[in-house]
């Protein structure tokens, strides 16, 4: 079980959170202007790194707010973790 540091509520059990996958993906302002390849890239392609990953979490059973954290996908350690 991960211990996740909600920016508003502090460290809580993973089971209170929902996972939102890769962060920083912005919806294209004008989808009609995109090629099919660009649209597929936005919709489906992911970095899926082995290592540091910026990702979205939502404190579903808490304050219900979304936030972004960086985590190592091999050690599972969050970057802001001092423990």
């Amino acid at each position: 079980m991960l211990l996740i540091n909600c920016p508003w509520c502090g460290p809580r059990d993973e089971s209170e959170f929902g996972y939102g996958g890769e962060a920083d993906i912005t919806r294209p302002a004008d989808p009609d202007a995109l090629t099919d390849e660009e649209w597929a890239d936005y919709l489906f392609m992911r970095k899926n790194p082995r290592g540091l990953h910026r990702e979205q979490w939502v404190h579903e059973h808490g304050c219900r707010r979304w936030f972004v954290l960086e985590r190592d996908t091999v050690t599972y350690r969050f970057s802001d973790d001092t423990t």
Binding site: M1, L2, E14, G18, Y19, G21, E22, N48, R50, H53, E55, R71, T73, V74, T75, Y76
Partner: peptide, 10 residues
């Protein structure tokens, strides 16, 4: 739920 290459889960 999360991405992971650690061969272990929660």
């Amino acid at each position: 739920a999360y991405n992971g290459y650690g061969q272990r889960g929660s």
